Amino acid sequence: GATAVSEWTERKTADGKTYYYNNRTLESTWEKPQELK
Rank of each mutant, 00 (worst) to 15 (best):
Y19N: 02
G16Q: 03
Q34P: 12
S28I: 15
L26W: 09
W8G: 01
W8A: 00
S28L: 14
T25M: 00
D15I: 03
Q34E: 15
S6Y: 09
A4I: 13
K17V: 09
A14S: 11
L26S: 13
T18I: 14
E7V: 05
Y20D: 01
K17I: 09
G16N: 05
T25D: 03
S6L: 11
T18R: 05
G16R: 01
T18L: 09
Q34T: 12
S28E: 13
K32P: 08
K32M: 12
Y19W: 06
E10D: 03
E7G: 07
Y20F: 08
V5F: 12
T13D: 14
Y20I: 00
A4Y: 07
S6A: 11
L36R: 03
K32E: 08
R11D: 02
T13F: 03
T25Q: 01
T29K: 08
N22E: 01
S6V: 09
A14L: 10
Y21P: 00
T9H: 09
T9P: 00
E7I: 06
R24G: 07
L36D: 08
Y19T: 02
S28W: 15
Q34H: 11
A2R: 03
E35G: 09
A4H: 12
Y21G: 01
T13Y: 03
R11I: 12
G16A: 02
V5Q: 13
W30Y: 10
L26Y: 14
Y19F: 10
Y20N: 00
A2H: 13
K37Y: 14
K12H: 11
Y20K: 01
E10G: 02
Y21C: 05
G1R: 01
W8L: 01
K12L: 12
K32S: 04
E31Q: 09
R11V: 12
K37G: 15
P33M: 02
A4T: 14
W30T: 08
N23S: 11
N23T: 15
T18F: 06
S6E: 11
A2C: 05
A14P: 14
K17F: 08
T18N: 04
T9E: 15
A2P: 14
Q34M: 12
D15F: 06
E27K: 08
E31G: 04
W30H: 06
N23E: 15
N22K: 00
Y19D: 02
T25V: 01
T13S: 09
G16I: 00
E35L: 05
A14H: 10
A4S: 12
R24Y: 14
T18Q: 04
G16M: 03
T29Q: 14
Q34S: 13
E10S: 04
R11H: 12
K32N: 05
A4L: 13
Q34D: 15
A2K: 06
Q34W: 14
S28H: 10
T9Y: 07
A2Y: 11
S28G: 05
L26T: 10
E7T: 05
D15Y: 07
V5G: 15
K37H: 11
L36N: 08
R24A: 11
Y19I: 05
R11Q: 09
R11C: 12
Y20P: 00
Q34A: 14
E35N: 09
N22S: 03
E27S: 05
Y20S: 00
T29E: 04
R24K: 13
E35I: 07
T29R: 11
N23L: 12
T29P: 01
S28Y: 12
K12P: 03
N23H: 11
E27P: 00
E7H: 08
T9N: 07
T29V: 13
E31P: 03
T9G: 05
Q34F: 12
G1Y: 10
S6R: 08
A2Q: 13
G16E: 03
R11G: 06
R24I: 15
K12G: 04
L26F: 15
Y20Q: 01
R11M: 15
K12A: 07
W30D: 07
